[in-house]
């Protein structure tokens, strides 16, 4: 284990990057999922079709392909735009952090779309009718009744989506983000101990997964609190 000395801080900062990517992509994933579910449930046929295409595409294409396409595609597009203003620029480097977070959020958001859609359908329509009868506006019904009730139903699958997100952060090292896997590759190049380094990465991810699993378990307990008397 002595070969790990000197790399502890690199792995620590790598883990911080993983956590940052996770938080940014979690936010985006919920956003994409809610927009997608809204579009799928709306009566607008164009919105239905766009949402259907979104879920089919991003659930059928490997994550690594999405990331590479976004990364190189965005780099070329931005370079073309910048060259209009300054023809001397040959290639524009774009931050893998944002492209990566956006990419994995798009992929997992496609799965979340289906989860949220199912959960919204699972909310008893009587609840919405009751809210209407009480004169609650449809916006307030959505915020105070549909979201809290849907959330409980979506939680188990949503926990799995969070686990997918945290595991997909490892893929962002392929487009050059200096997270833990990237650190391990550098450490291997210097120390020649690949097994030790990659096992450390595995343990870091295992701890992240454990934290997420325990959090979701706690949230599920909290969300189902009102149902426990019935048992």
């Amino acid at each position: 284990m002595e070969e790990l000395s000197g790399w502890g801080d690199d792995f620590f900062w790598g883990s911080v990057v993983v956590a940052q990517v996770f938080i940014v992509s979690l936010f985006l994933m919920v956003l994409f999922g809610l927009i997608g579910a809204g579009a799928k449930l709306s009566k607008n046929r164009i919105a239905n079709n766009i949402a259907a295409a979104y879920t089919v595409i991003f659930r059928g294409v490997p994550e690594i392909l999405v990331l590479l396409l976004l990364y190189f595609g965005a780099a070329i597009a931005l370079t073309n735009i910048v060259q209009i203003f300054d023809p001397n620029i040959k290639f524009l480097d774009i931050p893998p952090f944002w492209v990566g977070s956006f990419g994995i959020a798009l992929v997992v958001g496609a799965y979340a779309t289906e989860t949220f859609r199912g959960a919204f359908l699972g909310v008893d329509p009587g609840q919405i009718e009751a809210a209407r009868a009480l004169g609650i506006s449809s916006f307030k019904t959505f915020i105070y009744i549909q979201i809290p009730e849907m959330w409980r139903l979506a939680l188990p699958a949503f926990g799995n989506h969070m686990l997918s997100l945290i595991k997909d952060t490892a893929l962002i090292s392929i487009i050059g983000l200096n997270e833990t896997l990237f650190v391990a590759e550098q450490a291997t190049a210097t120390t020649g101990k690949p097994f030790t380094m990659f096992i450390v990465v595995g343990l870091i991810y295992l701890s992240f997964s454990t934290i997420i699993t325990l959090t979701v378990m706690g949230l599920e307990k909290y969300a189902n609190k009102h149902l426990e008397h019935g048992r």
Binding site: K167, L181, I199, V201, Y205, S209
Partner: peptide
Amino acid sequence: RGTPILVQIFI
């Protein structure tokens, strides 16, 4: 199930 498949491949 708790670790990324990419990390498993690299290990």
